[in-house]
Simulated scan of single mutants.
Amino acid sequence: MNNHEIDYVLHGDDMQFVEVELDPSETVIAEAGSLMMMEDGIEMETIFGDGSGGGGGLFGKLKGAGKRLLTGESLFMTTFTNTGAGKKHVSFASPYPGKIIPVDLSQEGGKIICQKDAFLAAAKGVSVGIEFQRRLGAGFFGGEGFIMQKLEGDGMAFIHAGGTIHEKTLAPGEVLRVDTGCLVAMTRGVDYNIETVKGVKTALFGGEGLFFATLRGPGKVWVQSLPFSRLASRVFAAAPYTPGESKGEGSVAGGLFDLLGGK
């Protein structure tokens, strides 16, 4: 076990938080701003990268921090270390309604690939990097799936997703097509690509976007029912209308309606 071995408890239903139990000298890393509360005796420190120890000095730390910039995350992460004599607890909260998914990386082949904003916290030693897609289609047209995060190690990691979470195990060769925003995470054996929606009418007026993710087994996939981008677009669409402001629903048809002078 190269990663710190932490215990945890999930609290809540739709607005969950995870309470992590730390033995003396154990450490958990988390995204900046995810802290909910912590007990006395826990020391908080802001660091470059993920603190996994595989960076190779200053250059390695700068490289890791630069990779985080590519995923739209902060340059910094925060560590929480139990400096006391007994067990201490620190809690991290979900950023919006949904579920926290605990993943034991040692049970998932030592690596999972997840959406760039899904990572919440992990045991110290878990490496948080980026996963570039091999295909140009996935790279240029993937939307939320362009650059994904990879979590590597043998410890616990916690990822967050919106709405209800569905976990599906794909058999070898089994194919699942998912809206790019609904894909949360997958194990290393799943082949991932982006395909265009067939049919001009479907692409223009379907309201589901022009692309979807094609996942091919074997492996495990986590799918969310309510991506934050979809929730945000619905809130924006329902906001009070002010003359001169656009209020399209997000599909190409909504944009065409605005161009034609529709209200």
Results as ranks from 00 to 15, higher is better:
186 M>Y: 14
190 V>G: 06
194 I>D: 01
178 V>I: 12
200 V>W: 10
164 T>V: 11
156 M>T: 04
202 T>I: 02
198 K>H: 07
164 T>D: 05
200 V>T: 09
196 T>M: 15
176 L>N: 02
192 Y>L: 14
179 D>N: 14
171 A>K: 11
160 H>E: 13
181 G>K: 03
190 V>M: 07
164 T>E: 15
187 T>K: 06
162 G>A: 05
154 D>Q: 09
159 I>Q: 08
152 E>N: 06
159 I>F: 09
153 G>W: 10
183 L>F: 05
187 T>M: 02
183 L>R: 02
192 Y>S: 04
195 E>Y: 07
167 E>C: 05
155 G>V: 10
174 E>L: 01
158 F>G: 14
196 T>K: 13
187 T>G: 08
184 V>R: 03
197 V>P: 12
174 E>C: 01
190 V>T: 03
173 G>A: 07
179 D>C: 10
198 K>V: 02
189 G>I: 02
192 Y>P: 02
184 V>P: 01
177 R>Y: 03
172 P>N: 11
172 P>S: 13
171 A>V: 07
165 I>Y: 05
185 A>D: 07
161 A>L: 05
157 A>T: 15
202 T>P: 11
199 G>C: 03
196 T>E: 09
201 K>D: 07
195 E>T: 13
166 H>W: 00
173 G>W: 10
158 F>Q: 10
162 G>S: 06
197 V>W: 03
202 T>W: 00
153 G>N: 11
162 G>Q: 04
172 P>R: 08
189 G>M: 02
188 R>D: 11
176 L>F: 04
161 A>F: 03
200 V>E: 04
185 A>S: 13
185 A>I: 06
170 L>F: 02
176 L>E: 09
165 I>R: 08
160 H>Q: 15
178 V>H: 04
201 K>I: 12
175 V>S: 02
195 E>R: 13
202 T>V: 00
191 D>F: 15
